[in-house]
């Protein structure tokens, strides 16, 4: 009887425990260690191998609902590219907020670097409707798809566009994706045009991307907040500027590395409940059998 009572505990009790588990590390960070994995290391190494003559596409294919997971990833990748002086084309193919994510993140990170210039080292090409149609068009001409940048200024006069005529000039496409658009970059752009593709996705969509990663259709996968924290760790270990940056309180509290404290504690709470629920289930089964 007691076992039954415990098993049917009000779901709001679980919500409360999860809320406490999430709040405590936000108020008092713990600083649990982060260990980079091979899929994340591969993108880091790829960016490390690039320089000022190389161009990458970073596509903001997510909206505000995925902000906590993908913003830290976007920031650390942008920081890495700008530190290496790699030319960055930013765009958004996700309709609900992708372009605003791009504007906010690009603005925040570009301000940290004194010697990079808009239109020369990076550009925000804005949002374009049609996903696959837009991707196919870029194989012919990126400028024809984006005749104007996010502010409506013509792109044809921008020096960076001379380094980004079509996919032939692109060293890697990095899609920060919440939905199916990340998949399109893999199964359309990589498959048909041979461009290396890395995807930084929300954790909920990470399992399906492992099939592409394993088949060699993607060069790297950053899965959810964990992927973001691993990239931050690699950046911090490699560069002094990043180490100082991620020590600043306003950046530290929103970093993926800090977020992993919350993840770890809440996961422990959920695992305890799963073990508890299953144990209670078997105890009840035994009690019913005995009756």
């Amino acid at each position: 009887m007691n076992a039954r009572k415990l098993l049917y505990v009000d779901r709001r009790v679980i919500y409360l425990l999860v809320a406490i588990g999430a709040l405590v590390p936000i108020i008092r960070p713990i600083g649990l260690p982060t260990v980079p994995t091979k899929p994340v290391q591969q993108l880091f190494n790829k960016i490390e191998s690039l320089g000022p003559d190389d161009t990458v596409i970073i596509s903001f294919d997510y909206g505000p609902s995925s902000e906590p997971e993908l913003n830290p990833m976007a920031q650390s990748i942008l920081r890495h590219c700008f530190q290496r002086r790699v030319k960055v084309l930013v765009m958004a193919l996700f309709p609900l907020g992708g372009v605003n994510m791009a504007i906010d993140q690009l603005q925040a990170v570009a301000d940290e670097f004194d010697d990079i210039n808009y239109g020369v080292d990076f550009v925000n090409l804005g949002y374009k409707d049609g996903a696959q149609a837009a991707m196919k068009r870029m194989d012919i001409s990126i400028e024809s798809l984006f005749p104007a940048d996010v502010n409506g200024d013509p792109t044809k006069d921008m020096p960076i566009m001379a380094h980004a005529r079509n996919y032939d000039d692109i060293a890697v496409v990095i899609s920060l994706a919440t939905g199916i658009i990340g998949e399109y970059w893999v199964n359309l752009v990589n498959a048909q045009f041979g461009v290396p593709v890395a995807v930084g996705c929300t954790a909920v969509s990470a399992p399906k991307y492992y099939a592409y990663l394993r088949a060699g259709q993607m060069m790297s996968l950053l899965g959810g907040l964990k992927g973001g924290s691993e990239y931050e760790k690699l950046l911090v270990d490699k560069y002094e500027f990043a180490r100082e940056l991620y020590e600043q309180p306003e950046i530290k509290i929103t970093s993926a590395m800090a977020g992993m404290d919350v993840q770890s504690i809440v996961h422990v709470i959920i695992i305890v409940f799963i073990i508890f629920g299953n144990t209670m289930y078997f105890i009840m089964k035994r009690q019913e059998k005995a009756r």
């Binding site: 809320a19 609902s65 906590p68 954790a203 899965g223 907040l225 929103t254 809440v266 959920i270």
Partner: peptide, 26 residues
């Protein structure tokens, strides 16, 4: 595979919760 997907789903949902809590607190 469903178990792995469930684990990732929890991670995603906790990230969303953390984002909102982080905003409310900070």
């Amino acid at each position: 595979s469903f178990g792995a997907s469930f684990g990732y789903t929890i991670m995603a949902r906790i990230s969303l919760l953390m984002g909102r809590f982080s905003f409310l607190v900070n």
